[in-house]
Design a protein around this nucleic acid. Structure first.
Lengths: 209, 209, 209, 209
DNA sequence: TGGTAATCGAGACGGTACGTCCCGTCTTAAG
DNA sequence: CTTAAGACGGGACGTACCGTCTCGATTACCA
C-alpha cells in the first residue's frame, strides 16, 4: 500500500491471492460454508494448498477476507432525507447482498464456527457487528440532526435488534427481505427509537445487573 | 409362515437410545456442535456406531432430537398478569435454557448446517420457529384478552423480531441476556405491538408483495 | 442316526439344517469361501443367524460339513482291473467333483484358514487327508494283490504326491485335469511306486531323521 | 506454464514404503495372512492408511510384494554337480524359506484369495509359478547338459509335481520338509524325468486333448 | 545479467473421522 | 425350548480432508 511496502520481502503472488479468494467465494456460494474444503479451493484456484495455508491460518480467516470483499463499503451510505427511507435503503442493499452473493452463507458459517472459537468470535464482532452498528448509529445521528428524533441512547441495541431480525428472516424465513417484512421492520425500529427517546429510563425501574 | 406373520416392528433399545441422547447432549455442550463426533458419542454412550446410524440418518437429526429434549415444554407458559411480565419471564427462561444447557450451541450449529440443507431447514422451522411463534402468539393473545393491547395482526413478525434479538445477543454479544437487554427488548416489543395496533396499515403505503 | 436318536432333546430342525447346508454350498460355490458370509447364508436359508451359531461354532465348521456332503463316498471305489486305470478313474472323479461342485473352493478356503488355526488343521487332516490316503492305499493294495507291483512302503507319500499335483493344477493351473495332465500324473505315480519297490532303500544312503 | 512443465512423477517415500513392507511381513508372519489388517500394518509402520492404499490397491497386492522380497533370488541357483543334489539343495532352501520367514503363510493366503479373484490368480502365476518352473527347468537343463538325463519334454509338469508335493507337505503335513520327505520327493522326480525320457509317448495311447 | 532465496504448483505424508459391512451375542414374539 | 427376525457392541474397512512436509520450477530482487 504505502511507498515503502514495495520493498517488502514476502513477495505474495497477486494472481494466486485473487484466485484463492475468487474460488473460495464461488465454492462457499455454491456449496455452503460447511462444505467448503480447502483442497477444493486450492484445486479450483490452481494453487498449492500450502499457498493458502501460508497466507491464512485457517478456513475461517480466509472466508472472513472473502466476506469483507463482498460487502460494498457504502451499504449504509445513502441519505434519503428521512430515517425510514435510510433504513429501507439499508435493508434493500442488505437484501441484495445476501441474495446475490455468498456473503450470507459465509457469514452464517462463520458465526456457527465462532461458537466454539472465541478468537474468531472477536474477529467477527470487529468485522461485522462493529461496522453494522456504526452504520446504524450514523443513520440515527442524521435523523437526530434533521430533528426527526431526539438523540437516542440505545443505538447499539437498535442496531442489533435490526440485524437480528434480518438474520432471522434470512436464516429461517423465506430467505428474502420482502416489502412487507421491510415495512414492519422499519416501523419497529422507528417506534423503538421514539419510545426510548420518549420515556428515557423509566423512573420506576431500578437499574441493576 | 402363518397368515399373521406380520413384520414385527423394529424393537429399539431404550437404554441405548437414552445413552446416545445423553452423550450427544454432553459432548455438544462441552465441545460445540462442530466438534461433536459420532464416534465420540458412540464411545461415550457405550454403543456401536451402527446403532446411531440405524436410528438417525445423520448428526443433525440426532441433535435435533437432543435439542427437543432440552427445551422444557413450559418455556412460555407463565402468566404473570401483564404482557411485559410474560415477555420478561420468557426471556429469563430462555436465558437459563441457553446458559445452563447445550441447547444454544446445538441450535446454532443446526442453523448453520441448515444453510446448505433445505430438508434440515424445514425440520428446524417445525422444531424451533413454529413453537416459538406459537408461544409469542399466546402471550400476545392473553394481553389482548386482558385489554392491554388490541389484537395484533403481526404476531409472527413480533415473534421473529424477539427471537432474532435474542440470537444476536447470544451469538455475537455478551452471551447473556442481562437485565438491561431484557428491559430494552421488552420495551421494543411492546411499542412494536402498540404501534401496529395504533397505526394499522398506513393508508399512504401500497401493500404489495 | 440310530433309532434312539429320535427322542433326543436338542430338537434340531431338519429343514433348517438342510437349508443352511444348501445355502452355504450355493454361496460358497458362487462367491468363494472368503466371500461367504454367515449373514447371507442365514438370509438365503430363511433361518436366523442364531440357528447357525447354535449348531456350528464358526464358518469353518459349517463348511467342513458342507464339504463332507459334496464328496461322494465312492470317489475311489472303482476297480478297473489295473493300477493305471484305477488312478485315472480317481482323477476323473476328482475332476468332476472340483469342476461341478463348490468342493474345491471350499476345501481351499478351509486350508487357507487352517494355516492360522491348528484345530481346524487337525480337522482337515481327518476330513480330507486321511480319507484320501486310505483311497490311494487301497488302490495300491489292489495292484499288489493283482501282482502288478510289489507292496509299496510309501503309500502315504504317493498319495500326497498325487494330491499335491492335483491341487497345484486346480489352484494355479488351468483349473481342469485334462487328459494330458492325467496321463503324466498316472505315469509319475506308477514309476514312483515301481521305483520304490525296485530300489527299496538305496544301500548307499544313510537313513536318518 | 512453460513448455517443459511435464507432470512430475509421484515421489514415493522410501522410508514409508520400506516400513510398510516390513510391518506387513512381520504381522503376516505372526498372525497369518487372514488376520493381517491394513490398519495394524499402518499403525505398526507409523504410516497413514491412505499411504498404503495410495500405492497398493488391496491387501493381496501388498503381500505379493512382501512375498517377492522374501524369496531370495538364488533359491535354485546352486549347481551341486548332480540332478539329485540340485533338487535336494532347492528343497533345503525352500524349507528354510518357509520355516524361517512368513513366505509360506503369505503365499497360501494369497492362493486362497486368488480362488475368487482371477486377476490375483494371474499375478500369482507370474510371481510364483513361472519363476519356480524356470528354476526347475534350468536344473533339468543342467542335468541334460551333464548327460545325466535326456532332455525332458515335461519340465513344467515336473516342476508342478514337485511344487505340489512341497505344498501339500507344508499345508497339511508336518510343516517341515524333513530328510525322509526330501529323499522320497527327489526319487519321485528323478524317476518321473527318466520315465518320460525312456518311454516317450507310449505308442499304445492315443494322444488327444 | 546472473545468482539466489522465497514463493509457487503439485501432491505425498501422518492423521482423524467418516459411514458401511459383518462379526458373534442378545432380545423378542410366535409356534 | 426352538425358531426367524433383527438390534446390539464391536472392529475393520476403504474414502475424504485435514494441516504439514517435501520436491523441482519459477520468479523477482540484488549483486
Amino acid at each position: 500500500m504505502s511507498i515503502a511496502a514495495v520493498a517488502s520481502p514476502p513477495r505474495r503472488s497477486v494472481r494466486s491471492h485473487e484466485a484463492v479468494l475468487a474460488a473460495a467465494a464461488d465454492i462457499a456460494g455454491r456449496r455452503g460454508y460447511g462444505n467448503t474444503r480447502i483442497e477444493d479451493i486450492a484445486a479450483q484456484a490452481g494453487v498449492g494448498k500450502q499457498t493458502i495455508y501460508r497466507w491464512w491460518p485457517n478456513r475461517a480467516a480466509l472466508l472472513i477476507e472473502v466476506y469483507g470483499r463482498l460487502v460494498p463499503p457504502d451499504v449504509g451510505a445513502a441519505d434519503t432525507g428521512s430515517l425510514a427511507g435510510d433504513l429501507e435503503s439499508l435493508l434493500i442493499r442488505l437484501s441484495a447482498l445476501y441474495a446475490d452473493t455468498p456473503a450470507g452463507n459465509i457469514l452464517f458459517g462463520l458465526i456457527a464456527e465462532a461458537q466454539a472459537d472465541t478468537e474468531l468470535a472477536r474477529q467477527l464482532r470487529d468485522t461485522y457487528v462493529a461496522p453494522r452498528r456504526s452504520i446504524v448509529r450514523s443513520i440515527l445521528q442524521r435523523a437526530a440532526d434533521r430533528g426527526e428524533i431526539d438523540p437516542p441512547d440505545n443505538t447499539d441495541f437498535v442496531s442489533d435488534l435490526f440485524s437480528g431480525a434480518v438474520w432471522f428472516q434470512l436464516l429461517l424465513g423465506t430467505r428474502s427481505l420482502d416489502r412487507e417484512f421491510r415495512r414492519r421492520l422499519v416501523d419497529a425500529v422507528l417506534c423503538t427509537v421514539r419510545s426510548a427517546c420518549r420515556v428515557g429510563q423509566p423512573p420506576d425501574r431500578k437499574k441493576r445487573t
